[in-house]
């Protein structure tokens, strides 16, 4: 019984997760890439991508999702996202004289490649937000497990 509990939820949940996980990731990527012309951007898209991984965690358990993206990898990806934003800022400082100056050509409005560096910026935010949320969830799941195992040992002693 306990082993089954470790490996996640029921067959129905797992099947549904398999079906919708691809759509979630694609929709998240769409929201990120079109963030500068339609409502959306790096933050909502990143949250959707993080939610996809959180769904996998809920359905299959922590082990499976950690074999896909481990905590350390997620943390490094998260840091790289932050670093890219800072580097964009520094390049703007070097080229335009102000921090976060938009140094790329603006293009025509309502085209995919327009609005200068916003698209790179959104991608970096996606990396940052998505991975941070995923790591926060993972960390809370680990903490939660510690608490429940402590409670079980307490009850055993009684």
């Amino acid at each position: 019984m306990k082993k089954e509990k470790q490996s996640g939820m029921t067959f129905i949940v797992k099947t549904i997760t398999n079906l919708i996980i691809g759509f979630m990731l694609v929709f998240g990527a769409y929201i990120v890439l079109y963030g500068h012309i339609t409502p959306g951007g790096g933050f909502p898209g990143g949250v959707m991508i993080a939610l996809a991984y959180i769904l996998v965690t809920l359905a299959y358990g922590r082990r499976v999702v950690e074999s896909m993206i481990s905590g350390v990898t997620g943390s490094i990806a998260d840091d790289i996202g932050a670093l890219v934003i800072l580097i964009l800022g520094f390049i703007g400082l070097y080229i335009g004289g102000t921090f976060l100056f938009n140094f790329l050509p603006k293009g025509t409005p309502f085209k995919l490649f327009s609005a200068g560096y916003i698209i790179i910026y959104n991608l970096a935010i996606m990396l940052k937000v998505g991975m941070s949320l995923y790591i926060v969830f993972l960390a809370l799941a680990i903490l939660q497990r510690v608490v429940t195992t402590r409670d079980e040992t307490k009850e055993d002693k009684k």
Partner: peptide, 22 residues
């Protein structure tokens, strides 16, 4: 151009410490 460095340098170092410090 030096003013944003007061916040950008510590944040940049903090992120670098998180990566290289591993």
């Amino acid at each position: 151009t030096l003013l944003p460095l007061f916040t950008a340098i510590p944040i940049c170092s903090a992120v670098l410490i998180l990566i290289i410090g591993k």
